[in-house]
Design a protein around this nucleic acid. Structure first.
Lengths: 153, 153
DNA sequence: TATAATGGTTACAAAAATATAACTATTATT
DNA sequence: AATAATAGTTATATTTTTGTAACCATTATA
């Protein structure tokens, strides 16, 4: 791989990161009681279905006590629920509730509304390009970044 | 614009956000004394050159007192410097120092090294696709998300 | 010149993220 | 059966982020 290519990718990711932080994490708090961390947890639960506490920590690189705190809050608000794994009773599996899914979708809708007001500035071609580029980035990033169960927390 | 397209974009951004958070913000702290906020500030300073305190706050949707705190820390570590605007002495302009630029690049290098170890799992075509997709995403997101001086902080 | 507006800082408080150590319960290993 | 390893929680402390109100200095306005 050329040094140039990976450098370009790194620079792009570094530039994209604060933009997403600004347009996703920040507006989120004004509209709901879900914290960014809680949103991350709900997001991976939506994409992956039921996950253990450790899985969540590994997916998001969060220390386990932090996962506990976040999940505790999500449970208080009835966004997720705990289920002991019948095969290994040490494991606690977390899954989205119907309410959690609904409110997650609602937050996503807010993002959609916000995005819509910005996307009108783009041509049809640019919108299509953003759609395709984000799709590709998502798929590739998920494939290389999301599954990492080797780290210890 | 079709509802479908903006929905896809929103979902992709929501999925990409935690991945970047995990692979950029988190490893950052292990390697340097720069906080995520400080990294964001240095990033926009590198891309935009000299910026006023308010500009920084607007670019990153940060309240001004928070910008002051972050810039104070960056100044302590000699990563940025203050300069009073001679035309309007209320304005304080912030710019990267040579040390700041060097350490920012070093953090970026860490990301590059980390990315490299992941990218080997991808085919040449996929690497090229990620490079192009991230470039497109960066440019489009910057064009629609980055300049927003209307908000009050 | 008096007043308002702007850019920024200071002081303070609260929420969230992060990290570590000690602990319980359960399962695996010897 | 005793011990070690694993999954998760509890407790605690620190750092970072976020928000608000009061304030100073400078510039613009009336």
């Amino acid at each position: 791989m050329s040094k140039l290519k990976v450098d370009i990718i790194a620079e792009n990711l570094l530039a994209i990161h604060p933009l997403l932080y600004k347009s996703i994490s920040k507006p989120l708090k004004n509209k709901s009681s879900i914290t960014p961390g809680g949103m991350f947890v709900m997001g991976i639960l939506k994409r992956n279905g039921m996950l253990s506490m450790s899985d969540i920590g590994n997916c998001l690189s969060m220390p386990k006590p932090h996962v506990t705190v976040i999940v505790d809050r999500l449970i208080e608000e009835e966004y997720v629920e705990r289920q002991h794994d019948p095969k290994d009773r040490r494991i606690v599996n977390i899954s989205l509730t119907a309410k959690g899914l609904a409110d997650f979708e609602e937050v996503k809708e807010d993002l959609v509304i916000n995005l819509k007001s910005k996307l009108v500035m783009l041509s049809d071609e640019q919108q299509e390009a953003l759609s395709l580029a984000s799709q590709q980035m998502k798929e590739i990033l998920i494939s290389i970044l999301s599954i990492e169960k080797n780290k210890e927390y």
